[in-house]
Nucleic acid binder design. Structure first.
Lengths: 235, 235
DNA sequence: ACAGTATTTATCCAACGGGTTAATTTCTTC
DNA sequence: GAAGAAATTAACCCGTTGGATAAATACTGT
């Protein structure tokens, strides 16, 4: 009798497994928060056994921190590719806003993770050594843009780059991360295409108007027909 | 033998108990989120027995919704007292920003609750009927200010009041609710007195500059000495 | 003073959830 | 082809947690 070819019950793939676990954990943590996340669900979603989490990553908290660090790593590395240096200052700021906005749109889990971590008053992030070092280059990048803008006369004001970045991130972040409750209380869907386009225009207009002193494009939806436009805006 | 005067084991006070439970629940939910909150801790903090929660309010979810509704009720009712109608438009906007900022500072649990609820994609808030109605008057209040500002020439642009409010709230909210992680990644304490003052100035400057077209007070920290000021800002 | 009701306490428990232990299967290498 | 290491599975452990049951205590009207 011919020896039947063994069908494998599982393949070995430690790297792949680790990645699948981290990805599944990202989903789970962003969907349910730290306390709400279920280790079993992460395992299931990763197509793995619960024991694997502990084998490959560590306990729930370590897993969470790994996910968080990965998330920061990803956004900062994409930001490095922005090269704002070669754009004239207003255009650089516009691009920074658009990037931030689109990144948040493309990576909603990042927003959730940040919220979760802040709910925990950054208890876990404080333990991370990697994260702290990733940010100064980014701040310098913005500082340079602002300085160039002031020197060239494009910008009326010199603004602290950290404040500016927090403002830009805040304008994007709050709208998106709180869109659920905001949609309910204001009774409009803030996530449909039109609403998102309007929001982006509003933010770019707001920031550039403040920096340059000139009202920008779509921000000034109407100044001609007295106050009619303000009304129309709401429908 | 004289009958000893009974010492009461407890007093009756349903109203008070209900309030203490809601207050304790607010603390607990804002500190630990919905999933992280512990019913026993709420009971203990309220100086009550766990059974009381179910007796006076209902199960964990109902308790959470009650807390959430209470939180919205409180901020909206304080906002109604702002009467922006009697201020000239730029001053009204400044006051709105200052109020929002200070309210968030005074009521950090409100921020946490919002974060928690958004993490749950407003699942619970959607069930609430009370909340939806509380907001249109507030939007109208802002709309009126904007309209007056445009008509008087103070504002260069007519802006959608909902967008404007979301921007103001976002500038305040993100800074405060994310101060924990931001402080870590930028390596500065964003909650000390000086930092908070600077932030408020920055926000008022940003928004008013955008609306009026004129750079406002502390926002323009320096335009004279070339780019030196931008550097000084960071220390 | 008595009955009936509202409020509060004291226990209990079944389900769940994170983590561990031990066995099983695959890979490597000699 | 055997031994040892690495990866994976299956089953269990045990404290926790939301919620339930029943009894005790205070208040009200009559």
């Amino acid at each position: 009798m011919a020896k039947a070819k063994r069908t494998l019950k599982w393949q070995r793939d430690p790297e792949g497994m680790r990645l699948r676990i981290l990805e599944a954990a990202k989903q789970e943590f962003s969907a349910h928060g730290l306390a709400g996340a279920r280790v079993d669900r992460i395992a299931a979603k990763a197509g793995a056994n619960k024991r694997m989490l502990y084998y490959h990553v560590g306990n729930k908290d370590e897993l969470y921190l790994a996910v968080l660090e990965g998330a920061y790593d990803k956004i900062r590395s994409e930001e490095r590719g922005l090269d704002l240096e070669h754009l004239d200052p207003p255009e650089a700021i516009r691009r920074l806003i658009e990037f931030t906005w689109n990144y948040f749109l493309r990576n909603p889990e990042f927003l959730s993770l940040l919220q979760t971590e802040n709910l925990a008053r950054a208890k876990h992030l404080k333990k991370s050594t990697k994260v702290k070092s990733m940010h100064s280059p980014f701040v310098e990048m913005i500082r340079t843009v602002v300085r160039r803008g002031v020197d060239s006369g494009d910008f009326q004001v010199a603004v602290d780059p950290v404040q500016l970045y927090i403002s830009i991130a805040g304008l994007c972040f709050f709208y998106l991360s709180n869109s659920a409750t905001l949609s309910v209380i204001f009774g409009r869907d803030l996530l449909d295409k039109k609403a998102k386009d309007e929001r982006l225009a509003h933010m770019v207009g707001l920031v550039l108007a403040a920096l340059t002193g000139q009202s920008v494009a779509l921000f000034e939806i109407a100044k001609a027909p007295k106050s009619r436009a303000a009304v129309a805006q709401t429908a």
